[in-house]
Computed example of a mutant assay.
Amino acid sequence: MSADRDLSRCSLNTASIKRATLPEAVDAAARAGYGAIGLWRDRVQETGAEKAAKLVADAGLRVSSLCRGGFLTASDEAGIAAALDDNRAAIVEAATVGTSELVFVVGGLPGSAPETAPAPGTDRDVVAARARVADRIADLAPFAAEHGVRIVLEPLHPMFAADRAVISTLGQALDLAAPHPADVVGVVVDTYHVWWDPALEASIARAGAEQRIASYQVCDWALPFAPLALNSRGHVGDGYVDFPTISRWVAAAGYRGDVETELFNQEIWDAPFDDTVATIADRYLRHVQPYVG
Results as ranks from 00 to 15, higher is better:
residue 19 R to L: 15
residue 48 G to D: 01
residue 59 A to G: 00
residue 110 P to C: 00
residue 106 V to R: 01
residue 91 I to W: 08
residue 205 A to V: 02
residue 202 A to E: 14
residue 47 T to M: 12
residue 212 R to S: 10
residue 105 V to G: 09
residue 151 I to M: 15
residue 98 G to M: 04
residue 101 E to P: 02
residue 258 D to K: 05
residue 101 E to D: 14
residue 252 A to C: 05
residue 226 A to H: 13
residue 283 R to P: 10
residue 25 A to C: 04
residue 17 I to C: 03
residue 51 K to R: 13
residue 185 V to E: 06
residue 233 R to D: 07
residue 167 I to K: 01
residue 292 V to K: 10
residue 119 A to K: 10
residue 120 P to R: 03
residue 146 E to W: 06
residue 94 A to L: 05
residue 41 R to V: 15
residue 187 V to D: 03
residue 246 I to L: 12
residue 134 A to Y: 09
residue 116 T to A: 14
residue 31 R to N: 14
residue 71 F to I: 12
residue 277 V to L: 04
residue 120 P to G: 05
residue 219 C to E: 11
residue 247 S to T: 02
residue 152 V to I: 15
residue 206 R to C: 07
residue 273 F to P: 13
residue 25 A to I: 00
residue 179 P to F: 13
residue 238 D to S: 15
residue 258 D to Y: 15
residue 21 T to E: 09
residue 263 L to K: 02
residue 79 G to N: 08
residue 293 G to S: 07
residue 279 T to L: 13
residue 91 I to Y: 05
residue 103 V to A: 11
residue 255 Y to H: 09
residue 168 S to Y: 00
residue 286 R to A: 15
residue 285 L to R: 11
residue 265 N to F: 02
residue 219 C to K: 05
residue 289 Q to N: 08
residue 258 D to N: 13
residue 238 D to T: 15
residue 6 D to M: 07
residue 123 D to G: 00
residue 54 K to C: 00
residue 245 T to K: 14
residue 24 E to K: 00
residue 129 A to I: 07
residue 223 L to I: 10
residue 40 W to M: 11
residue 194 V to Q: 02
residue 40 W to I: 14
residue 161 A to H: 07
residue 279 T to I: 11
residue 226 A to R: 11
residue 160 F to C: 01
residue 153 L to E: 04
residue 63 V to A: 08
residue 48 G to S: 01
residue 226 A to I: 03
residue 293 G to N: 09
residue 142 P to S: 08
residue 235 H to Y: 14
residue 287 H to F: 15
residue 158 P to M: 01
residue 215 S to A: 14
residue 199 A to E: 13
residue 230 L to G: 14
residue 217 Q to R: 11
residue 177 A to Y: 05
residue 73 T to R: 01
